[in-house]
């Protein structure tokens, strides 16, 4: 069990699956013969031209992507882009109108139950049972996977350790902080020793300490060879954890790739943020020296491969505050989905 706690491995692409710390508990499944059936077990999730509408509203529109075993795949998009619906489709909790979904080799939703037996889910909103203690929540949830009480009692201490909740085992869930609840939800998601984790905004609403602890725990899971589908609108989270990501809007894929490749491809130069001043007027001043200029509220985002020129143009103006920085995923996201609020 020390494996889990010491496996604070960086999220470099050269992750190797290590031996599994949790006993293989789920009946009839094995995730050990990767080398034997390479091609099949290499794909964790495959969506092909999947569409889903509710009434007139198209929520998922001809979406296709493939997630390879062992990678962390981020699903990014503004609120209402259809991210949570994608999670539901993958879990077989909603049938697609069109297209095919395969998860861990099982067609979904027809055989979703068999896929779900090897999936751990951290839903967007905690679904912990407030009537029970931390330990009882794990016990109840483990039984949903058909695990025996004895097996669970053996597995629970290591999960509590993983979630840093050893001292809270017999505390009612209602008394936990937001971060602790999230960690318990993560521990619940691991009770069946899943190959695949589906995390729907796992750190939304958490303070920075709690968030960093969750990220560190997730990296250690990736180091163990777990596959993660991470839904988030938190760019720092995607940047830190994801090997690849896909940005969706109105249920359609806008772009897909590795985070740094996307940053290079979509932005490719430094960003100067200019605060104070009239964005419209400043746009005309710095415009000729920038690849692109975008106004968001009172801030001007100036993408320029020659930032010195931009600074030169603004020299002498009072009341301006300039911040020059390398481009990040948030710039990519905002560039693709638009800086201004849409709704």
């Amino acid at each position: 069990m020390q494996l889990l706690t010491r496996a604070n491995v960086s999220s470099s692409p050269s992750r190797r699956p290590e031996s599994n710390p949790f006993k293989q508990e789920c009946h009839g499944h094995s995730n050990t013969d990767n080398s034997l059936s390479r091609s099949k077990s290499d794909v964790a999730i495959e969506l092909t031209n999947v569409s889903k509408s509710y009434g007139d509203k198209v929520v998922v529109d001809q979406l296709s992507f493939t997630i390879t075993s062992g990678e962390c795949f981020g699903l990014l998009g503004p609120n209402g882009a259809g991210k949570s619906t994608v999670s539901r489709l993958v879990l077989g909790l909603a049938p697609p109108d069109e297209g095919t979904i395969t998860v861990l080799g099982e067609p979904v939703p027809a055989r979703a139950r068999l896929a779900r037996s090897r999936i751990g889910v951290v839903p967007q909103f905690d679904t912990l049972d407030p009537e029970f203690t931390v330990r009882q929540n794990l016990l109840v949830f483990g039984r949903y996977f058909g695990l025996r009480t004895r097996e669970l009692e053996e597995a629970i201490p290591s999960l509590l350790e993983f979630a840093r909740l050893e001292s809270k085992a017999d505390v009612p869930v209602a008394e936990l902080s937001g971060g602790m609840k999230r960690r318990l939800t993560l521990a619940c998601a691991l009770i069946n020793d899943p190959q695949l984790l589906i995390l729907d905004e796992p750190t939304t609403g958490l303070d920075p300490h709690a968030r960093h602890l969750i990220w560190e725990r997730l990296r250690s899971l990736l180091a163990l060879g777990k596959t993660i589908l991470l839904t988030t609108h938190f760019m720092e989270e995607a940047d830190r954890l994801c090997d690849r990501l896909c940005v969706i809007e109105h249920g359609r894929k806008i772009v897909e790739g590795r985070p740094h490749a996307l940053i290079d491809e979509q932005i490719g130069c430094d960003v100067i943020e200019i605060y104070g001043g009239n964005p419209r007027e400043l746009t005309s001043v710095v415009g000729p020296y920038a690849q692109r200029v975008e106004a968001s509220g009172e801030t001007l985002f100036c993408y320029s491969s020659d930032p010195e020129q931009v600074r030169l143009q603004l020299r002498g103006r009072t009341g301006l505050r300039l911040l020059q920085r390398p481009p990040n995923l948030e710039d990519v996201f905002l560039r693709l989905t638009g800086r201004e609020m849409k709704d």
Binding site: L91, L114, R116, D129, Y144, C188
Partner: peptide, 14 residues
């Protein structure tokens, strides 16, 4: 309201 089924539906239960 309590979402008890919601978490159960994410498991191998139907």
């Amino acid at each position: 309201a309590k979402r008890t089924w919601e978490s159960a539906l994410c498991t191998q239960l139907t």
